[in-house]
Design a binder for these strands. Sequence first.
DNA 1: TCGAATGTTGCGAA
DNA 2: TTTCGCAACATTCG
Length: 272
Amino acid sequence: MPELPEVETVVKSIRPKLENKTIKNCQIYQNYSRIILHSSFHVLKNKILGKKIIQVTRRAKYIVLHLSEGYLIFHLRMTGQFQFNAQAPKHTTFSLDLSQGKMHFVDTRKFGTVEYHPDLTILEKKLGPEPLGEDFKLAPFQAALNKSAKNIKAYLLDQSKVAGLGNIYVDEVLWQAKIHPATKAGNLSKIQIVELFKAIPQILNFSIKHQGTTFINFYFEESKGGNFQNMLKVFNREGESCPRCNKVIVKIKFAGRGTHFCPACQKAKGNK
DNA sequence: TCGAATGTTGCGAA
DNA sequence: TTTCGCAACATTCG
């Protein structure tokens, strides 16, 4: 169930196994054709067969295989993983046969997706700036927040605003910036926005260093897990003490998701 | 047995 | 028009 740091970890781990390999064949399993977006399996197959994988990159939570012509794009959603066994493991939905080795897309919940596009405009159209990229800048971030009536938790989960944050890192980032999740984006003070702007790349980079967060089912390279779950300040820590003020962390359902925060040091209101 | 789970989309209602 | 809340997708786990 990966967010940006977990996807980054996956990309790093699969890159050496994919780059400079040629796609010899591909399979879809059972009646999982619905995981192929924007075209049919057969159309996708015809597009990618014989193409060479030039480069593997990440955009938000998407994994992008740059082919000698076009792009093959994966999204892991909640439970997607890649494995390189000879045999397709249980819950494999899609496989690539490469000039050297096979890659299986293994996905217990079957929410993960595969799509082919001649260019990346379809992603760029729906995604906001990369929080670790050069176009994530304070002034436009602030201007966009000021214009929004959304609560900040939902705002940060919205991939068209900032791309790559998910439930874990939104909770962590809001704790770091001392912002209550229900605060309206447009009511954040300048100071709060600056804190938020700093916290986002800081926490994402720190998690990437620790190879992401593994609770239940994020793994890369067959069975390795990340370590960042040991560094979390609020997520999954309901009832435990806030590392900053020692008060009890609470969990509520908010913006449709489990939401963890410290009621003592994440104030209930913006102060603009 | 029931509810929740690291994601996204789409719907109806406010 | 924008936001909110919820269901849906399919499966596992506590």
